[in-house]
Design a protein around this nucleic acid. Structure first.
Lengths: 204, 204
DNA sequence: AAAAAATTTTACCATGTGGTAAAAATGCAA
DNA sequence: TTGCATTTTTACCACATGGTAAAATTTTTT
């Protein structure tokens, strides 16, 4: 049993997590510095280290926070009725996540580019289980003749890839289109086009 | 007019570029160290700095080399006959690039995650022009009623996103499936599924 | 083979970065 | 308001990292 966190502690730890997410998103674990995070969080480095004993601890906390949000997102969808509804819903949720947690998504991207040394363990079993369930659902649809015979895992990867692309590579997208998912019109257009192509692509 | 590069120069500069690509792919510009690159290239740090005067110069050379390959890849496809053939061909080429230049792809990913400070200038106009041409072709197909009315840019992003996903996030993919694009069977299956979904998704 | 040019090594240095110790300041409960 | 606990600042340190100078070595040219 651990002592109740004080008001200041709660505020400052969250400040560090927010700043850490932003910095790690840009530079990855190795490239980020405690000074950068401290400055963005508006406190001195030793002050920050009063809340997190070292850089790795900040990183772990950021990863865990993001991970929870991501897993929650992945489990949020439900096999409601038709595959059409279910897939539409799934893409919706993923797009929403990409828009609202772009920095978290980029922290993940950086971590995976480094070979996912931490995430591999943190994620391993949970993600495999979730993906396994998704795969089973899709396999069921194929068996029932509701969608074309496709390899489920690649459909899942496609949806992840596209939605994450809009957050992870937003710098590139912005250069080319002048827009990001923050632009409501662009957001809807992207979601609509992607949903349409995937639905028509898999439905019979 | 610059002097002809010596035999040793050619060999060692390429060694540095190869090592640099691998290290920058993992850690990005900030996270990579000259020592790591030097060690992987099998030479001492001062020796490496005899060929490239500083870290940024190595990075620029790596980016440029990768950029040339990427732009070449993007321009390799041709509007042959039907949209079906053309899109299939385009996806083929991108998948091949992801498999054969995974580290280069990751260097790009890292650069874009950092906000593409260098690439923005290096790439800016060239990429815009290429994407503009692609967009025009797709718009033509829509007008001619050959494919469904979709927003071309998002189709392009979809194809980029998916193919790059297999190289950039191969660590995640390997955790989940035990496979990478290096596995011939997996490569063909991924390409086939993606091609099928996108073709059925856009063709009328 | 000798001289010149190119390459590699050795020995550095300045700065950046992760992290600590302890004093000073602040918040808070009695 | 006083005393205790929490928080913040100041002043550091050790090591990593980017980079340099110059000597030593190897390669190439004459």
């Amino acid at each position: 049993m651990q002592k109740k966190r004080s008001r200041i502690q709660i505020i400052n730890q969250q400040k560090v997590l927010d700043a850490g997410t932003e910095i790690f998103a840009k530079y990855g674990f190795r490239g980020a510095t405690i000074d950068q995070i401290a400055e963005l969080a508006g406190m001195s480095k030793p002050n920050l280290l009063y809340y997190f004993k070292n850089k790795k601890d900040i990183y772990l906390a950021v990863l865990e926070q993001t991970l929870n949000k991501w897993l929650q997102c992945l489990m949020e969808w439900q096999v409601t009725a038709t595959p059409e509804e279910t897939i539409t819903n799934y893409i919706n949720i993923k797009f929403e996540f990409s828009r609202d947690h772009a920095d978290g998504s980029r922290v993940f991207a950086n971590e995976i580019l480094e070979g996912a040394p931490i995430l591999k363990n943190l994620l391993g079993e949970d993600l495999k289980r979730i993906v396994g369930e998704d795969t089973r659902v899709i396999k069921g649809w194929v068996k029932d003749g509701l969608i074309r015979p496709i390899e489920p895992i690649h459909l899942i990867f496609m949806i992840w890839a596209v939605t994450q692309h809009y957050s992870d590579f937003s710098a590139q997208i912005e250069t080319l289109t002048g827009k990001t998912l923050a632009d409501e019109k662009f957001y809807k257009q992207a979601k609509k086009t992607v949903t349409q192509i995937i639905l028509k692509g898999v439905l019979i």
